[in-house]
Computed example of a mutant assay.
Amino acid sequence: MKKNILKRVLTLALAALLTLSLFACGKKNNDSSTSTSGATSYKVGICNYVDDASLNQIVDNIKTQLAAIGQEKGVTFEISYDNCNADSAVLNQIIANFIADKVDLMIGVATPVAVAMQAATEGTDIPVVFAAVSDPVSAGLVESLEAPGANITGTSDYLDTDAILDLIFAANPGAKNIALLYDQGQDSSTTPIKNAKAYLDKKGVSYKEYNGTTTDEISLAVSSIVADKADAVFTPTDNTVMTAELAIYETLAKAGIPHYTGADSFALNGAFLGYGVDYANLGVETANMVSGILLDGNKPATTPVLTFDNGTATINTDICKELGLNYDDLAKTFAPLCTKVQSIVTAENFDDLNK
C-alpha cells in the first residue's frame, strides 16, 4: 500500500516537473523572438545633411524601397530618420543616438554625414552605407570605388563637369565670362570646380569664383555675378547653393544669366538647367545595397561603390521662357551631348509637380 502511494506521488511530481519544463521552454522561445509572425527586424538609422529637394528625394526613395523589400522578404526595417541641417554638433548627436539605439546599419546622405558616420563607427561592427557622395575616394571614405576596403560603401553622384560646360558653349558659343558659384566648405564641390577651371583654362575662357556658406551669402554672391555681367553660372552638386536656389533663381533669370547646375533638383527650384544622375534611382539603389548587406551578408569592404550615368539634362521651361530661349531648339542642340533631355517647371519639391 505504501509502495503504491509512493509510486503515485513520484508520478505526479514527475508530471509537474515536465509541465514546468515545457512551459519554461515555451516562454523562453517567445521572449527571444525579434518580431511577430516569425519576421526578423533590422534597425536602420538615416541621417540627411540638409533639407533640399535632391537629398529629400533620395531619403524618400530609400524608405519606399526598403518597405517594398521588407514586404517581399518578410522582414521589417525599423527606420530612424533625422536631419542635421548642416550643423556638425547636431550631426554628431544624431549618430550617437543611433549607436545608443544599437542600429544594425547607418545610412549617411551626403559627404559630411558619411564622413562623420565613418569616424564614429570605427572599431564597431556597424556598417555604413552612404548616398550621394560625389568623390568618396578624395573624401577618404574608401580606398577605391571597386574595393572600399573598410566597413563602408554606398552610392556616388559623381559629376561629369566637362559635360555640363559643353552644354554652356553649345547654347552660347560666344560665352566669355563664366561664374563659378559654390561653397568652399562643400567637399562635393572641390573636384568639380578644379575640373571646371582646367576646362575653361584650356578653352581660354575667363572665369571668376563666387562663394558663400549661407543662403544670404549666396544671394550676395549672385548680386555680384549680375553686376559683373557673367554669361553663365556653373554650380556643381553643392548643397549650400541647392538650399539657396529658391532665393536666387529670379535674380539670375531677370538678369538674363542661365544657371547650369549638377542636379535636376536645382532646375526644379528655378535654375535654368540641371545635369546629372537620377536621384530617385540613386535612392532605390542605396536601399538595395542596404538589403544586400543586412539580408544577404554582403561585406561593405568588398561591395563596390555604385556610380551612375550622368547624362540627363533637365531644363526649366519657366526660366527658359524668361531668358528668351526656346526649349525645343535647346533640346535638339543638347541631344547629341546627353543621354536624355527633359523638361521641368519651378516648384519647391518634386511631389508638388503631381498636385
Rank of each mutant, 00 (worst) to 15 (best):
I79M: 14
N281Q: 11
A267R: 04
N92T: 13
A39F: 05
K63H: 04
Y81R: 06
G297V: 12
A119K: 12
T34E: 07
Y207L: 04
N269D: 01
E348D: 10
D82K: 08
S343I: 04
I178H: 09
K208D: 15
N83R: 02
D104R: 02
S37A: 14
A13E: 00
Y260C: 02
L17W: 03
I152V: 15
N281H: 03
G270V: 03
V345M: 06
A263H: 00
I315G: 12
S224A: 10
Y275Q: 00
S21P: 12
D60F: 04
K28Y: 10
N48T: 04
K340Q: 06
I58C: 12
L273E: 07
E348A: 03
G74A: 03
V341M: 08
D352H: 03
G123Q: 12
T34Y: 03
T286P: 15
N211V: 12
P192Q: 09
T237P: 13
T64K: 11
A230W: 00
D231L: 11
G174V: 09
N30E: 15
Y327M: 08
L200S: 11
I168Y: 06
A221S: 14
K202Q: 11
T312I: 11
D166M: 15
K7F: 09
A24N: 11
G185W: 05
K102G: 13
G274P: 09
E72M: 03
